[in-house]
Structure formats: structure tokens, C-alpha cells
Amino acid sequence: MATNVFIDGAAGTTGLEIHERLAGRDAFEVTVLDDAQRKDTGARAEALDAADIAILCLPDDAAREAVTLLGESADTRIIDASSAHRTAQGWTYGFPELVGRKSIANATRVSNPGCYPTGFLALLAPLIRARLLPANAPYSVNAVSGFSGGGNAMIERYENDRGIAFRTYGLDLAHKHLPEMQQQAGLEFPPVFAPSVIPAYRGMLVEVPLSLAAMRHSTSAGKIMAALQEYYADTPLVRVHDSLPAELLVRRDEPANDGLDLYVAVSPDETQVRLIATLDNLGKGASGAAVQSLNLMTGQPETEGLVLPDN
């Protein structure tokens, strides 16, 4: 019997891409509401209750409302693509490579990671856990994203104003991704986060610079590379590259991709390192991650329906 999946918020960017990844898959019967019903509380409550799994592609407040509409006693399992529950008690963080596939498979409440935190945590969390890097260091993260990460309003802004070449934001140093970055990496302090948007529809580059000499910690660039390669050796969607190209690009016409690529750049004297992740903010950073969790929760092959990276 097919699993009934209700996409609440199917008209948004993330919901549309999830729907595309589920199209034609016999394992799922996908429910979406039309324009006349999608803001009707009663219709949403009914669809949520009838679903085996609901995927919430909503603003944070609406996602919290959806959980309330469902109620504590409902059997419906939830994947929340918003940031509403990423640090909430009782929710499983939807990053299988970090929390374990069994944790996702057995969860009733899964919160999708943020796009920026996906790159940051993929780089840093395994190294903190292995004690190759200290949990109390003052980390920073620099990142650029395609404008689709800002939703329909940001997409409209960039498509209507071709003069925008670069946008940096989060200047109050209180970005909503910081709590999940700190919690999931196990850091004593939140990182200094410098996010920016570029005039490309999709794609993302996340970088964590490290001064190994200043840390005075017993580690090396070679140990960092080896640890990341070992950690992700058996993961189908995360690749740790042995070699580093002369440059890493985010193209204006970046194709969809549900993979995650990690690089380690090292200074000649090996005292400085740049940890770099590249990903699709709409793929492994959003819709692809939700479908990966959905696959695990329903016993489907982990990468079924995903856009796999080229070898």
C-alpha cells in the first residue's frame, strides 16, 4: 500500500521541488491542496490527520500551527522543512549522516536542517566529535547562497532587480540558524556567521576558516582530511574530495543536485585550513534532505528520487 504524503505548503519553492522528486513514485500517494483550500484551516487539519506523513513547507509560525492542528495523539509523522523545530525537544534532526539513519527511520517528528547549517555541520561536527577541533574555539562561517533560499519574495526581488550583484545580511549577528549550528555541532559558543546572497537561482558555498596554529590544539590538516574521509566513506550523498581545484564556483545556471561536496584547503606551512562545502540550497539544503528522510522513514532506498551528484 502506498504511503499517503501530504505536502503542506506545496505552492512554495521547497514544496514544489519535493513534489517533483516524488512524482511517478508508486510508493507514495501525494496529497496537495488547491489554492482555494491551502489556507483553509479545516481543510489543512483534515489532510494532516489523513496523512501517514506530512511534510511542512511553511513559514515557522504556520509550521507550529500545523503541529497544533494535528494534535499530540495523531499517528501522522511529520517532516518539518521550516526552522521552527530544529532545536526543539522531541524532534529528530533530519541529517542522517550526523544523527544516524536508524534515528531518522524510527522518528515520528523530523526537523529538516537549514541550508547553511548543512554545510557548516557537515564540515565541523565530525571533527568536534573526534576531538580534532576544540568545542570552545571562536569559529566563524562565511557563506554565499543562491537567491531561491529566500523564498518567493527574494526570488521576485532578484528577478526584478538585475542590478543586485551581492547581498550580505544577518548584520545583527542573530541569524535564526545560529542555535542549530551551535547545538548540533556541540559548540560552547555560537559561530560568527556571515551569510550572503548572490544573483544565482540555486547553489551554495559554505566555508569555515581555521587557524590551527592559533588554536594550539593537537591536530593537523592531514588528520582533518583523514577524519572527514573516514566519517563519510559509506555515505551516498556526501563526497570528501582528495584534490582541490584552482577555484570553486557557484554558477548562475547551477543544476539541481542533492549531493554535498566537501573540500579541505591547506596553507603551504599547514598552519591554516579552509573547510569548504558546496551544495544546492534547494537540494541537500532543503527538498532533497526532506525526501532523503522520507525514504528512510518509509523503508525506501535512501537516494530514491534524488538527483545524485556526478562522479
Rank of each mutant, 00 (worst) to 15 (best):
P113G: 07
T92G: 00
N106K: 14
A125Y: 09
L121D: 06
I78N: 04
A122N: 07
S73N: 12
Q89L: 04
L124D: 08
L133G: 03
D60E: 15
S140W: 01
V144F: 05
P117L: 08
H85C: 05
R101K: 11
T87P: 04
R131W: 00
S73H: 12
P113A: 08
N136V: 03
L124Y: 06
T87C: 13
G114W: 08
I78M: 04
A137T: 14
S82E: 10
G90P: 06
Q89V: 14
A135S: 15
A122Y: 05
I55S: 00
L132H: 14
S111G: 14
P59F: 08
D80C: 06
Y116L: 11
D60M: 13
N112P: 01
T68A: 14
A62G: 00
A66I: 13
Y116N: 11
E65Y: 02
R77H: 03
R129S: 13
S82N: 05
S103P: 00
R129M: 03
S82P: 14
A122K: 10
R131P: 00
N106T: 13
P138C: 10
Y93S: 01
S103G: 00
R129T: 15
L69T: 07
L58K: 01
P59N: 05
A122D: 05
W91I: 06
Y139Q: 02
A130S: 15
L56T: 12
T87K: 02
L56N: 11
L127S: 01
D60Q: 14
A62C: 01
L121M: 14
R77M: 03
C115D: 15
T76P: 04
A143Q: 11
P59W: 08
D60C: 03
L132V: 13
A105P: 11
Y139C: 12
S111N: 01
K102G: 04
L70D: 07
P138F: 11
G114E: 11
A125D: 05
I79W: 09
P96I: 04
E97G: 09
R109P: 03
Q89F: 01
K102P: 00
L98Y: 07
N112C: 15
F95L: 10
C115P: 00
P126L: 05
W91Q: 03
S111I: 06
E97C: 03
P113C: 04
T76D: 01
L56W: 12
G100C: 05
A125V: 07
P134W: 13
S73W: 03
T68L: 07
L127V: 10
A74D: 06
V67H: 00
S73R: 06
T87L: 05
D60T: 08
P113W: 05
S103H: 12
P59K: 09
L127E: 12
Y93D: 08
P113Y: 09
Y139N: 09
I79H: 02
P113N: 11
F120L: 12
A88L: 03
E72K: 12
A84Y: 10
C115G: 14
D75T: 13
L70M: 09
Y93W: 14
